[in-house]
Design a protein around this nucleic acid. Structure first.
Lengths: 221, 221
DNA sequence: CCTACCGATCGGTAGG
DNA sequence: CCTACCGATCGGTAGG
């Protein structure tokens, strides 16, 4: 988790491992702590003092890294989105069949969420729960990221449709159905503490194939 | 919106329409205002003073209706869940075919979300973003509601599977795929300010049929 | 990275 | 439903 949030260019594990906590820099711990707390309690529900306590420094020290709580959130979002982009999108452009590439992309997206659920939780908080001036800054960043994500998927489905690799439907509808299913699986994972909602690899593939073929089965064709 | 949040047994529109704002009782306006603000800014991001200002009274007056901000949230959740239950579940037990009943249920669920998006936003906030003692109270309420919702769907899919009305798969997997798709559509609606993400009735039905038959179409059978 | 502190606002109460 | 007020905590700063 911490590594994807590391400040750019840092080689902390080699150079500073002796003095810092477990070799993780304060900035890394700040990012990880803020991500976890924002995800748990929301942005408004988390104070800078809460974050400082988890990092293990005094509140005033956080202001050496960010000029404000708002800047901290924005940096967290920017890093998280870049990481999500890099982890999920490449699979779409792979060498296999359309069906295989979409499955690889779906699996990568679910895995990213399982491993970095705090980040995905923050994306959601940011997209819906922040108003005022900060809300406008966040909206700009989020919508930019979402646009590039959707564009990639739209062109994938346009291509798949022409190749006859998917159902005979409007590519935008295909893209929408896929995105909403993925969206639901990720959202479901975030709120899932239940045992029966666990997503091991076997069940994920079974459920994906069921989604691909349709829950209506032969009756729906 | 206000009517589903009205205090039980109130006949406000007939008896008090002369003096209160547009005939809506203060309690009604309190519930509606709190719902809108919690949905917009999150629970921690909304103060009692914010709510009072929208209602049009002083902060202290809110404490005539609820002993605490936590109690206000709990009451809001309870009312909202009962409303969602009543609006979405009956369709599942209707007289038509399994496919028709599931579509009616899906459409009712989407409509409820479109009309009461603040409530659905609060369900999500409550499920993921509140910790501590309040978090435990909320979890208890939410998981109770979710359990009855899932039980209803599980038995529907068990029944549908036996009748050969759905794909030949584990009813729990069928239920999961359906719930996650629905989940995604609702979540998508909450964050959607975009034009291309609008859900008119035609598109909803088109997209639903595509989901039912599978985006893989003939290639996936 | 710390101690010490700022004005503003938090949820909530007293008393009417 | 109001005015007036409580101690605690908020985001942030000064100065080292």
């Amino acid at each position: 988790m911490t590594e994807i949030l590391s400040p750019a260019g840092a080689a902390s594990s080699l150079l500073e491992s002796r003095e810092a906590d477990e070799g993780v820099s304060t900035h890394d711990r700040l990012l990880a702590s803020a991500a976890a707390l924002f995800a748990e309690r929301g942005y408004g529900g988390t104070s800078m003092a809460d974050i400082a306590e988890r990092v293990g420094v005094r509140k005033a020290s956080l202001y050496n890294y960010y000029a404000s709580k708002e800047d901290l959130l924005m940096d967290l979002l920017r890093r998280g989105m870049e990481a999500a982009h890099g982890a999920c999108l490449p699979a779409l452009a792979g060498p296999g069949s359309h069906r295989r590439r979409l499955w690889d992309h779906f699996r990568a997206t679910v895995r990213f969420t399982v491993e970095h659920s705090e980040l995905v939780a923050i994306f959601r908080i940011a997209a819906t729960q922040i108003g005022g001036d900060l809300g406008a800054r966040v909206d700009h960043l989020v919508s930019e990221h979402r646009r590039s994500f959707r564009a990639e998927l739209s062109s994938f489905f346009l291509d798949a449709r022409e190749a006859g690799a998917v159902a005979d439907a409007d590519p935008e509808d295909l893209s929408y159905v896929f995105r909403m299913f993925t969206n639901g699986v990720l959202t479901g994972h975030l709120g899932a503490c239940d045992v029966d909602e666990r997503l091991d690899d076997e069940r994920l593939e079974r459920v994906w194939n069921l989604f691909w073929s349709g829950i209506g089965g032969a009756t729906g064709a």
